[in-house]
Nucleic acid binder design. Structure first.
Length: 542
RNA sequence: GAGCUCGUAGCUCAGUAGGUAGAGCAACGCCCUUUUAAGGCGUGGGUCCUGGGUUCGAGCCCCAGCGAGCUCACCA
């Protein structure tokens, strides 16, 4: 518990102060304190009152709070109490609280919790202050608080000791208040539209519904290996089969992958499904949802993220193919046309053309053929130009999109910052989505991006059990050829579809990332109360 | 997993050229009855992240490790 001799001796000193406090007739750890107002209440009610009003109509209040500043001046003194995320000053003078009361004041330390009973007034400098008539000791801080002006600034300590961060950095507290408001607004939005909130298993025998590596665990009594879920998707659609036409779930997903400013191994996901709707309906709903939540949380759809103003009420939509063409790097030519990306045949014809016109001596990044191989290689592993034809063209197109629009290699940093919906995805990268009626190589799917990262993924759900079985088999083949994030087979899910899933559209939204946008937080760790950290004592081996 | 940067008192940070470690806040003692990053006088407090190495001498230079931040990769 102690980091140093300094802390140990401080702790011992505070213990002896507690004994002195008990001698004054106060309990060291009392059980309650009947405050008349919270500090935010007091500020809301009397924050604007003038000194004369407070004198004429004396307001008796009793508040509790933690001492964040204390300034003794001989036979009087001030302290600043903090509670409910706000602060209020108290004024304690010997002739008002008596010998015992003032003796208690002198035994107080930064961080202590106290109750203050008295009446409100304004000091010479105009600060709203409680003129204390009775002090009540509530609990002692046995350890030293961080520096009062800078607060706790060490990022690592802020995450590891969030309990200190929360009361020393009120901006940190505000982020989590907004987090709660966000969750409330999301629920309200769906409740108002007749969606039922449900909870599906977090421990699953088949970790499906997304492409990610799972955590494994074990149930002893049943002697059964289980995975922590990577997505609730397949269970939610089983519920739609069961006749729950509109469902949503907000809860944790677990993915056994790296951490970054945008990834925490456990993160909060919103997923919702709506029968008789398709992905176009969800595009509209998404735009409405994000604007609604922004209004509820911030009172405006404008948010500032990384120095850029983003309007969460203004959206653009474009197809994946349009996005590739729009953001194709100028120095790579020839550039593809919409037609070149339309089908496998057209795409590989374009690819062959790129090889044919390739000039020796031109930099790799400016050679379309090599650029394609490089871009695709980023997705499937390093790739020689000759091998590109072995990759399903849909994967190639998806890889191009990621290289050109998402990756920072070619992205001039202004892509996908303002709210953008990218729709029409290749079938091979979307094992659970429904094909476009007249174009079975493409599926009815969209993702949306804000602030430079992906926030959500949605599609018209594939509800043909025969096709679904086939897609799972395609995935198994990719898995066999080394893609360990390819989807697993879920027989029971196919059986559920066989009972009949109505036409349905579904969507998943990364809630932590949404909160990052709404609070201007650059790291996901700033919106998660206790982000995962390496064990400090033992140290990791990798 | 890779690259870059960082780790000095409880906290926030300095630390010159390699020459026996500093400030402010916090703590302790004293003074002070409208202060607010209160003020004044005085005192105590350090495995300089860890382990090696170079050197007469290392907080500083070199190597390895641990932890963190950022960027990239993977994903939402």
């Amino acid at each position: 518990m102690f980091d140093s001799e300094f802390e140990r001796s401080l702790f011992d000193l505070r213990k002896s102060k507690l004994v002195e406090i008990e001698k004054l007739g106060q309990a060291a750890y009392p059980n309650q304190f009947p405050a008349s107002h919270s500090i935010p209440d007091v500020r809301a009610k009397w924050g604007q009152s003038q000194a004369e009003d407070l004198e004429a109509n004396r307001a008796a209040v009793s508040v509790a709070g933690r001492i964040m500043a204390i300034r003794a001046q001989g036979k009087a003194g001030f302290a600043t109490l903090q509670q409910g995320g706000e602060r209020l000053q108290i004024y304690v003078r010997l002739d008002a609280v008596g010998e015992q009361g003032f003796a208690l004041y002198k035994l107080l330390d930064l961080g202590d919790h106290i109750g203050a009973t008295g009446y409100l007034f304004r000091t010479r400098t105009g600060e709203l202050t409680i003129h204390v008539e009775r002090l009540t000791f509530l609990a002692k801080a046995m350890l030293a608080l961080p520096e009062k002006f800078h607060g706790l600034a060490d990022v690592e300590l802020r995450y590891r000791q969030r309990y200190v961060d929360l009361f020393t950095n009120l901006e940190a507290r505000e982020v989590f208040v907004k987090r709660a408001k966000t969750l409330k607004a999301l629920r309200q939005f769906f409740d108002d539209r007749g969606y039922l909130e449900v909870e599906t298993p977090m421990m699953q025998q088949v970790a499906g519904g997304a492409a990610a590596r799972p955590f494994t665990t074990h149930h002893n009594a049943l002697d059964m290996d289980l995975f922590l879920r990577i997505a609730p998707e397949l269970y939610l659609k089983r519920l739609v089969v069961g006749g729950l036409d509109r469902v949503y779930e907000i809860n944790r997903n677990f993915r056994n992958e790296g951490v970054s400013t945008q990834h925490n191994p456990e993160f909060t996901m919103l997923e919702f499904y709506q029968a008789y709707a398709n992905y176009h309906d969800l595009m509209d709903l998404t735009e409405e949802l994000i604007a609604f939540v922004a209004q509820e949380v911030n009172g405006t759809t404008i948010t500032n993220f990384g120095g850029v103003e983003i309007d969460l009420g203004k959206w653009t939509r474009l197809t994946m193919r349009e996005a590739i063409i729009k953001w194709w790097p100028a120095f790579v030519h020839p550039a593809p046309t919409l037609g070149d990306l339309k089908s496998s045949e057209h795409f590989f014809a374009f690819f062959d053309h790129c090889i044919a016109v390739a000039k020796p001596g031109v930099r790799t990044s400016e050679q379309p053929a090599l650029f394609l191989a490089y871009a695709i290689g980023k997705m499937v592993g390093p790739l020689h130009v000759d091998k590109v034809r072995e990759i399903p063209w849909g994967k190639c197109v998806n890889a191009l999109f990621e290289a050109v629009a998402e990756s920072s290699d070619y992205n001039p940093a202004d892509h996908l910052i303002q709210p953008t919906i990218v729709h029409e995805y290749p079938r091979v990268v979307s094992p659970l989505s429904k094909q476009k009626p007249n174009d079975p190589d493409w599926v009815e799917r969209f993702e949306f991006y804000i602030g430079g990262f992906e926030l959500g993924n949605a599609f018209s759900e594939l509800n043909d059990p025969v096709e679904q079985q086939k897609r799972f088999e395609e995935q198994l083949a990719q898995r066999a050829s080394g893609d360990d994030e390819a989807h697993q087979m879920d027989e029971d899910y196919v059986r559920a579809l066989a009972y009949g899933l109505p036409p349905t559209a579904g969507e998943g939204i990364g809630v932590d990332r949404l909160i990052m946008l709404l609070t201007g937080s650059k790291s996901i760790r700033d919106v998660i109360l206790f982000p995962l950290m390496r064990n400090r004592e033992q140290g990791g081996s990798d």
